[in-house]
């Protein structure tokens, strides 16, 4: 008999015991270890995925911030450039205005200086001419300049005629207390009397005259009454002298055209 039923039973029991043993010592520990490892790997992968997602998120945020920063920087740069341009233009305008103002002031100052110089030169020339005339008259005619001036004044006074004489006569009558004779120098009493006499002869009934010394007249004498005035001064000569000098200077300033005409 090939089958021994006791052995069959014993082997079945042995097999069941072996199943229990292997479950206990082989399958459970091994499968538990595999599961634990798989869980751990899955956890690590999930962690890695989470970290990757987080990194991607941070990178996206960084990129967005970077872009915003670039845009902001470009806008600020553009703004700064336009501001700088506007400021530069403003400064240039201000500088131009300041330069124009300075130039105008300098021009005015130069004109003022030139005018002052002109006046100073005119005064000096008047004084010099007056001094020369006084000396020449004393040497040649043994007469004083003041006396000759009074004489010339009286001559002019007497030579007056027509409307000018009438106007002055009316003025002298209208202002009996305000007839004034001004001269650049102190007139002696004899001259006062001569003048007074000549006035009475020319304009009968004229009131007494007041005499004043006015150095700004340089070498001159004048009579004023109620807005009317008759005068003689070296200035009249000096005006023609100045015109002559100016014409001479103008000729010296513009020599080029003459040269060109010569060469042609």
């Amino acid at each position: 008999m090939l089958i021994d039923w006791f052995t069959v039973g014993a082997q079945a029991l042995n097999f069941l015991i072996l199943v229990w043993l292997l479950k206990r010592f082989l399958y459970k520990p091994i499968l538990d270890a595999v599961d634990a490892r798989e869980e751990r790997i899955a956890a690590q992968l999930a962690d890695a995925d989470a970290k990757k997602a987080e990194a991607q998120k941070q990178r996206d945020t960084f990129d967005q911030k970077n872009e915003a920063f670039d845009r902001q920087r470009a806008a600020l740069m553009s703004q700064a450039a336009s501001d700088a341009k506007a400021e530069g233009q403003r400064l240039l305008d201000e500088a131009g205005k300041a330069a124009d103002a300075l130039s105008a002031r300098r021009r005015e100052a130069l004109q003022g200086d030139a005018q002052n110089l002109d006046e100073a030169i005119g005064r000096r020339i008047q004084q010099e001419v007056f001094a020369i005339a006084r000396k020449a008259l004393a040497d040649l005619a043994t007469d004083s300049l003041e006396a000759r001036m009074v004489w010339v004044f009286i001559t002019r006074l007497r030579a007056m005629d027509g409307k000018a004489k009438e106007d002055l006569a009316e003025a002298l009558k209208a202002a009996p207390g305000s007839v004034l004779v001004r001269s650049a120098f102190d007139l002696p009493a004899a001259q006062h009397a001569t003048l007074q006499t000549a006035l009475r002869e020319t304009f009968p009934g004229v009131a007494p005259v007041r005499f004043e010394t006015a150095p700004e007249l340089v070498g001159g004498i004048e009579l004023t009454a109620n807005g009317q005035k008759i005068a003689w001064s070296i200035s009249d000569y000096l005006v023609s002298l100045k015109e002559g000098v100016d014409a001479l200077l103008k000729q010296k300033v513009e020599p080029a055209p003459k040269l060109e005409t010569k060469s042609q």
């Binding site: 042995n14 072996l18 043993l21 292997l22 010592f25 082989l26 091994i30 270890a33 634990a36 751990r40």
Partner: peptide
């Protein structure tokens, strides 16, 4: 049975996770 059980026990005694 002895070989299988003892071998399994021996190997799974200190399993590495």
């Amino acid at each position: 049975m002895l070989v299988l059980a003892a071998g399994s026990k021996l190997v799974t005694r200190k399993l590495s996770m």
